[in-house]
């Protein structure tokens, strides 16, 4: 049974701080086992082995990492690139802006989701050009 995502998870591809740290480690050096990942994690966020194993399991279930068994241990590698994950997140932000679910969290320069047809854009361009001419005429 699929576990229901917490309602506080705003993006479908949300990763926690530790999960992001693990992804960073795997992007830098793929094919590591849980212990090796623990070793390369910075001191301030180094978890114990069982926390790391459950984090890797979560990432595996989310489809962020894949694994292969070597001896007794699983070796993990990222199956989503850094650029790909960021692109997904940006796409999700745009979708959420469209739904109005980020209105109190995030302000965007223009409403990326609001539609405007080409004719209206051309009309606005003409208005701007007219205003520019008017201002230049006043200066002369």
């Amino acid at each position: 049974m699929t576990k229901r995502r917490s309602s506080s998870n705003v993006l479908p591809n949300t990763l926690g701080e530790l999960e992001l740290g693990v992804m960073e480690a795997l992007w830098d050096a793929p094919h590591l086992d849980a212990k090796a990942i623990c070793d390369v994690m910075p001191q301030f966020r180094k978890p114990n082995l069982s926390t790391m194993q459950s984090t890797l399991e979560r990432l595996y279930r989310k489809g962020m990492v894949d694994r292969e068994k070597r001896g007794h241990a699983y070796h993990y590698f990222a199956c989503v690139s850094r650029a790909n994950l960021l692109a997904r997140m940006m796409g999700e932000v745009i979708h959420l802006l469209h739904d109005g679910r980020l209105e109190t969290i995030l302000s965007s320069f223009v409403n990326v989701a609001a539609d405007i047809d080409q004719a209206s854009l051309a009309e606005l361009e003409a208005l701007i050009a007219m205003k520019k001419q008017e201002l230049e005429g006043r200066d002369d």
Binding site: G91, H98, V110, N111, A114, D115, I116, S120
Partner: peptide, 15 residues
């Protein structure tokens, strides 16, 4: 943006 924008939600804010 690879977002399918529905014209029913068309807003005129930029305009």
């Amino acid at each position: 943006t690879s977002v399918e924008v529905c014209t029913a939600f068309a807003e005129r804010d930029v305009e």
